[in-house]
Simulated assay, not measured.
Amino acid sequence: MTLAGMLRADPVTRTAVLMAMSGYGQEADRQAALAAGFERYFVKPVEVQDLTEAFSAIGRRGRDVV
């Protein structure tokens, strides 16, 4: 089981927002990360504004970030 799968299976972290950052930028890589349970997938190098917007959106929703 992947880390995202384990976090989704645990009641404590089930609703945590999971984001992935990788050097792999193919559409298949992004789709695999989303299928694994990640909500956002960033390809390095990541723009600071993209991260800021993602974290701001989470803050507005009131969810934990893992």
Rank of each mutant, 00 (worst) to 15 (best):
T15N: 15
A32H: 09
R40I: 02
A33K: 03
M19Q: 13
R8M: 06
V46F: 08
G5Q: 14
F42G: 01
L7K: 09
G62Y: 05
E47Q: 14
L18E: 00
A32M: 10
L7C: 10
A32C: 07
V65F: 13
L3S: 13
A9D: 11
G37M: 02
P11Q: 08
V12L: 14
A16V: 08
S56Y: 06
D64C: 09
Y41F: 13
L7Q: 06
E53Q: 13
A57N: 05
S56G: 12
V65G: 03
R40E: 08
D64I: 06
T13H: 05
S22K: 02
R14T: 13
A32K: 12
R14A: 15
R8I: 02
T2E: 06
L7S: 05
Q31E: 15
A35M: 10
R40Y: 00
V12E: 15
G25S: 03
M1G: 10
R63A: 13
Q26D: 11
A20N: 03
K44A: 07
Q26C: 04
G5C: 06
Q49R: 14
A36C: 07
T15R: 15
S56I: 04
L34W: 04
T52Y: 09
Y24Q: 12
D10L: 09
R30M: 09
S22Y: 00
S56N: 12
V66H: 11
I58T: 07
A36I: 00
Y24T: 08
